[in-house]
């Protein structure tokens, strides 16, 4: 599956990115304890970047991490952690991944939530936008957003229907 541009125009670029296997790792304890924490984004809202530089391991809920299309290194980290501290669930298909860019990307999200407040002191945040459950990450060229797949089509339609004054 390759990237599909959903919206492109008046300062907004919404591109659906290909997403393969997706894991959710859930530790038994919060705050996370034990040896596995080394190399893990243990703080709430922390993100560890993968070898390609994108967000690879997102601590988006108490003791719950998302590993979208995990690179080998992160997959290994998760497998190791599963031995001692929690369980890993293959949730492939649960999330669809979008890249929101363009000068007015922030304004798009501001139509749903106070982005600054939500991401304050955090790299990723679980937040419902346009009534769709999402995980939001700020990246250099805008935002990376994971939307629960059954909501994704309406998420795109909601962004499309926005009327953003000049």
């Amino acid at each position: 599956m390759m990237a599909v541009t959903q919206i492109s125009g008046n300062g907004i670029e919404l591109v659906e990115r290909p997403i393969g296997r997706v894991l959710e790792f859930v530790a038994f304890h919060f705050p996370p304890e034990g040896a596995f924490v080394v190399g893990w984004p243990a703080a709430p809202g922390a993100v560890r970047h993968d070898t390609l530089g994108g967000p690879g391991l997102l601590h988006f809920a108490p003791a719950r991490w998302l590993a979208p299309s995990p690179c080998a290194e992160i997959a290994a980290l998760v497998a190791a952690a599963e031995e001692a501290a929690g369980t890993c669930v293959d949730v492939t298909g649960k999330w669809r991944e979008f890249a929101l860019g363009g000068p007015r990307a922030g304004r798009v999200l501001a139509s749903a939530v106070n982005v600054e407040a939500v991401l304050e002191g955090r790299e990723c945040a679980a937040i419902t936008m346009f009534d769709c459950p999402c995980i939001l990450v700020r990246v250099t060229d805008g935002y990376r957003i994971w939307v629960r797949s059954s909501f994704a089509t309406d998420f795109i339609a909601a962004v499309q229907s926005l009327r953003l004054p000049a």
Partner: peptide, 12 residues
């Protein structure tokens, strides 16, 4: 929310 930080009450 101790995990997510301050959020609007409508989220809870």
């Amino acid at each position: 929310c101790p995990f997510c930080g301050p959020r609007e009450l409508r989220e809870f």
